[in-house]
Design a protein around this nucleic acid. Structure first.
Lengths: 131, 131
DNA sequence: CTTGACCCTCCAGTCACTGGAAGCCTTATG
DNA sequence: CATAAGGCTTCCAGTGACTGGAGGGTCAAG
């Protein structure tokens, strides 16, 4: 199968698939004309990657997950540990964004948003903590 | 004032301050020895940037915010519009992360995390949507 | 006079792609 | 059989916002 069809099936841009080959995540063989000739297993791997990336795993995490996936003797604990660490990172990120949102939301509500120059948002940003 | 002291006062690494000069956000004059000689207005600007960045504004947003801040004839509506757009982006990001968290959290809970290879996390990632 | 803490510039690397140029291959149509 | 459209190839450069490090100048204290 050519890269365009694989892209559709795996839900990844062709560019991204080439990039994944570059960094060694997939190794499709080549046809005589130089085109990548994807096998079912390659498509499957790419779909796996697509889903793992959609869950926010880094490329290196994905590499590890693929290795674990292909290792029939893996311990599920290893997968769980990785996923839990990632979950914590996501939760931290959410908390950080929520704190930004809360502050920003207050400021936006406090700002009249009219033609006058007076603006609580700028006032807050300019607050001199060293005064 | 030298960069080290400014870094402490503005709450930014010296490296970052040099970078901000590179991209034209601050323009401190130089001493005879080549050291940056920060004025109060530079420190103030950097503290402004530090807070705006902490709220997640992009550098380009910060550049605009600084311009608005220094424009006494600005309309607060312009600031509000920028802040609201940013707020929406943050909210989208939060929603996206929450969806990741929910899925991931379910998977983590479903995984025994023991020595056995059976793992719902990998099973989900490998789910063949083209079957 | 030396030591250590500053400061300087410049280059490279991060992460995960993405865009674009230049050129070959394939397929459909006239 | 010629051509045109579209798909494939490689390679290079850019994104955002820094960050690390090399290599070297400057300054204040003892």
């Amino acid at each position: 199968m050519n890269i365009g069809d694989v892209a559709k099936r795996a839900g990844l841009p062709a560019k991204t698939i080439r990039y994944y080959e570059d960094i060694g995540l997939v190794k499709p063989p080549r046809d005589a004309n130089g085109y990548r000739a994807f096998r079912e297993q390659d498509v499957h791997k790419l779909a796996f990657l697509s889903r793992a990336r959609a869950l926010g795993f880094t490329i290196e995490d994905c590499r590890t997950l693929l290795t674990l996936y292909e290792d029939q003797t893996r311990a599920s604990a290893d997968v769980k540990t990785l996923a839990e660490a990632h979950l914590h990172k996501i939760e931290d990120k959410i908390a950080q964004l929520q704190s930004m949102r809360d502050t920003l939301s207050e400021l936006v509500h406090a700002c009249a948003g009219d033609n006058r120059p007076d603006c609580p948002i700028l006032k807050d940003l300019a607050a001199d903590t060293n005064a």
